[in-house]
Amino acid sequence: MGERFFLYDDTVETKTRFVSFMGENQRFDLAIMQTDRFYGKYLVLDLQSNRFAIIGQDDLDEPGYLEYAYNLSEEDANDLRSFLNEFI
Rank of each mutant, 00 (worst) to 15 (best):
F21M: 08
N50G: 00
A77Y: 09
Q57D: 11
S73G: 07
L66Q: 06
Q26A: 13
Q26R: 14
S49A: 01
T11H: 12
K15I: 14
F83K: 02
L80D: 05
Q57K: 12
P63R: 02
Y68F: 10
F38E: 05
R37N: 03
I88Q: 03
F6H: 12
T11Q: 11
D61I: 02
S49I: 00
L66K: 10
Y39L: 08
D9N: 15
R27M: 15
R81E: 12
D36F: 04
L66W: 10
Q48N: 11
Y42E: 07
D61A: 02
L84F: 02
I55F: 01
L30I: 12
D76V: 12
E75K: 14
R81D: 11
I88D: 02
A53G: 00
R51Q: 00
T35Q: 05
G56Q: 02
L72R: 05
Y8E: 10
T16F: 06
Y8K: 08
I32Y: 11
L60Y: 04
F21S: 10
G64R: 13
A77D: 11
L84K: 04
L84M: 03
E3M: 10
V44F: 00
T11E: 12
I88L: 05
D46Y: 01
S73C: 05
R17I: 15
S73N: 06
L7E: 10
A53P: 01
I88N: 04
D10K: 14
S49D: 02
S73P: 10
I55W: 00
F6Y: 13
L30F: 10
N25Y: 14
N25Q: 11
L7K: 14
V19I: 13
D76W: 14
F6D: 08
M22G: 12
F21T: 04
E67D: 07
D46P: 00
N25D: 09
S82N: 06
D29P: 03
T14Y: 09
P63I: 03
S20M: 08
F18E: 13
T14H: 12
I54C: 02
E24C: 11
D10Y: 15
R17H: 13
S49M: 00
M22N: 13
E75C: 15
N50C: 00
A53H: 00
T11L: 09
D59F: 01
E67W: 06
R51A: 00
K15L: 15
